[in-house]
Computed example of a mutant assay.
Amino acid sequence: MTVPDLPPVQRQDPPVRVSVSAPYLVPLIVGGLVAVALGVYGRAHTPTGYAVGLAGFSGAQAMKSWLATAAFVLAIVQLVSALAMYGRIPGLRAPSWTGTLHRWSGRAAFLVSVPVAFHCLYALGAQFDVPRVLVHSLLGSFFYGVFVAKMLSLPKRDLPGWTLPLLGGLAFAALTGLWLTSSFWFFTTFGVTF
């Protein structure tokens, strides 16, 4: 009995999967670039020592401490409103205006933080010689990088559900660290002054 010749078996490679995650990496990359750029600028820029202050405060440090405290309080509003919107507070049903409160408290926190960041970068620069100031400088750069990443991620509707809470949580953690290494330190060292 003869066996007919069979055609050679053609080997097929598994299909190549093309990743569609690149558009979602853009906010992270841009946020990372912002953080690095702020850190590099803060380190390379020669601090002027010139205090940019707002009327009503006894000095630049008091101004920074109170504005950072306002930003921190608004960040707490952000945290609580986000937890309410995501249904993470047992027994609390988020009112219809919670989303509006979340957006506007975030905008206000950012606006209040800008004079503080400007003064830190322009007058003081990034300093790495004192551990508290090193941590503060790194957290400041990180905060604005995470903030940019979160803002750029907001319009992307098909992100994994954990993305915005993670970025928001990182921004809150960074702002908490910033407040502890600046305002809290100032108030416990020099007293609560305006």
Rank of each mutant, 00 (worst) to 15 (best):
residue 47 P to Y: 04
residue 35 A to C: 07
residue 63 M to Q: 12
residue 62 A to P: 07
residue 43 R to G: 10
residue 69 T to M: 14
residue 41 Y to M: 09
residue 48 T to D: 04
residue 33 L to C: 15
residue 27 P to T: 13
residue 64 K to C: 11
residue 39 G to S: 11
residue 65 S to R: 05
residue 50 Y to P: 00
residue 45 H to P: 08
residue 49 G to F: 01
residue 35 A to Y: 00
residue 40 V to D: 03
residue 51 A to V: 09
residue 53 G to A: 10
residue 60 A to C: 07
residue 60 A to T: 13
residue 38 L to G: 02
residue 45 H to K: 05
residue 45 H to W: 14
residue 50 Y to S: 08
residue 63 M to D: 04
residue 64 K to G: 13
residue 40 V to P: 02
residue 39 G to A: 12
residue 39 G to P: 00
residue 58 S to M: 08
residue 62 A to S: 14
residue 29 I to R: 09
residue 32 G to C: 03
residue 62 A to N: 09
residue 39 G to D: 10
residue 49 G to L: 01
residue 35 A to H: 03
residue 58 S to I: 11
residue 46 T to L: 06
residue 57 F to D: 01
residue 49 G to Y: 01
residue 52 V to P: 07
residue 68 A to L: 15
residue 47 P to S: 03
residue 58 S to F: 05
residue 41 Y to Q: 02
residue 39 G to E: 08
residue 50 Y to K: 09
residue 45 H to M: 07
residue 40 V to F: 09
residue 30 V to N: 11
residue 29 I to T: 10
residue 37 A to R: 00
residue 42 G to R: 01
residue 64 K to D: 15
residue 68 A to Q: 15
residue 61 Q to I: 13
residue 60 A to W: 11
residue 67 L to I: 04
residue 67 L to A: 06
residue 35 A to Q: 04
residue 52 V to S: 10
residue 47 P to W: 08
residue 48 T to N: 05
residue 49 G to D: 00
residue 34 V to R: 00
residue 55 A to I: 09
residue 55 A to G: 10
residue 43 R to I: 09
residue 43 R to C: 06
residue 45 H to Y: 11
residue 35 A to T: 02
residue 58 S to P: 02
residue 40 V to Y: 07
residue 50 Y to E: 15
residue 28 L to D: 03
residue 51 A to E: 10
